[in-house]
């Protein structure tokens, strides 16, 4: 669907994207996970044709670069900023973008989208009066107005409350269910783990690794940690099979009790499985949240 090959882009002395390559397959939700400043938005701008790379190539649907308006027609972008006209109503905003794309039966399409993002009740209200979450949803709807095959969502949950975040994530899942291909950037690993079929870990403009969450964890997450609390002290055991380790620890505690040994009871137990945070730590030596 979308292929970026050895993309490089520099702003002055700052290297924003440094030889990044990725391939987004048709019908998948691909997550670009990385901290702020990792080069995700620059990658999105290059992928959409808004920004020309210094080197490398972009191909959309095998049709060539999205700098060509006919190729660009197949993608929709919800930028990180709310790129809507605050003094227009929700309906007027969507209608405007529908007219720009020459959408036939624009009125029906706009109504569909307003219903999809659950803003039909506020359709005739000015965007300036909307909450952050409502603006985010409308921002997303504006990217869908021409029914694109590829949807690029750049940090679509930035700055919204948990309820709105869940609505947006549900919406993304729904889009994937309808067969859309989604390129999703975020610095929230929970989001990436929750909705992405594959995730690319980005830092300093480089693609560090790509795979499913399970594959990335298996490759870079290391072993699970089982933490056992006994008599106020904690013992941390790293193991590939934490369930077996827990069973072993309980068996040992029972045996101690039968032998009448006191003070060795297990008072607490915690399993820490490796996740994308661990993967990122392993790949970069620093936390995703730093």
């Amino acid at each position: 669907m979308l292929a970026l090959r050895d993309i490089r882009r520099r702003f002055g002395s700052t290297i924003a994207v440094d030889g990044l390559s990725l391939e987004v397959r048709t019908g998948e939700v691909f997550g670009l996970l990385g901290p702020n400043g990792a080069g995700k938005s620059t990658t999105i701008a290059i992928a959409t044709g808004l920004l020309a790379p210094d080197a490398g190539s972009v191909d959309l649907l095998g049709l060539g670069s999205p700098s060509n308006p006919k190729v660009r027609m197949h993608l929709g972008l919800a930028p990180q900023e709310i790129t809507l006209y605050a003094e227009l109503t929700a309906r007027e905003n969507l209608r405007f973008f529908a007219d720009l794309y020459g959408v036939s039966n624009a009125r029906v399409r706009v109504d569909e989208l307003l219903a999809l993002v659950e803003l039909d009740a506020r359709a005739n209200d000015r965007v300036a009066t909307f909450s952050g979450g409502m603006k985010r949803r409308l921002n997303l709807a504006a990217a869908l107005v021409h029914d694109p095959k590829l949807v690029l969502l750049d940090e679509p949950t930035a700055g919204v409350d948990p309820q709105s975040r869940n609505r947006i994530l549900e919406l993304v899942r729904r889009l994937a269910g309808e067969g859309k291909t989604v390129l999703y950037t975020t610095h929230y690993m929970e989001e990436a783990a929750k909705i992405c079929d594959r995730v690319g870990i980005v830092d300093h403009g480089r693609m560090l690794d790509v795979g499913t969450v399970a594959e990335l964890v298996a490759r870079h997450g290391g072993q699970s940690a089982v933490t056992i609390e006994r008599d106020g002290a904690e013992e941390r055991i790293f193991t590939a099979d934490p369930v077996a380790e827990v069973a072993r620890q309980f068996a040992r505690a029972n045996s101690d009790r039968e032998r009448g040994e006191v003070g060795r009871e297990v008072t607490g137990l915690r399993i820490e499985r490796p996740d994308l945070e661990t993967v990122f730590l392993s790949l970069t030596g620093r936390s995703l949240r730093e």
């Binding site: 959409t48 808004l50 006919k70 660009r72 930028p79 790129t83 809507l84 973008f97 720009l100 794309y101």
Partner: peptide, 9 residues
């Protein structure tokens, strides 16, 4: 919003 305009065909 100019980016949205630029993205349009």
């Amino acid at each position: 919003t100019l980016d949205r305009l630029r993205l349009a065909p």
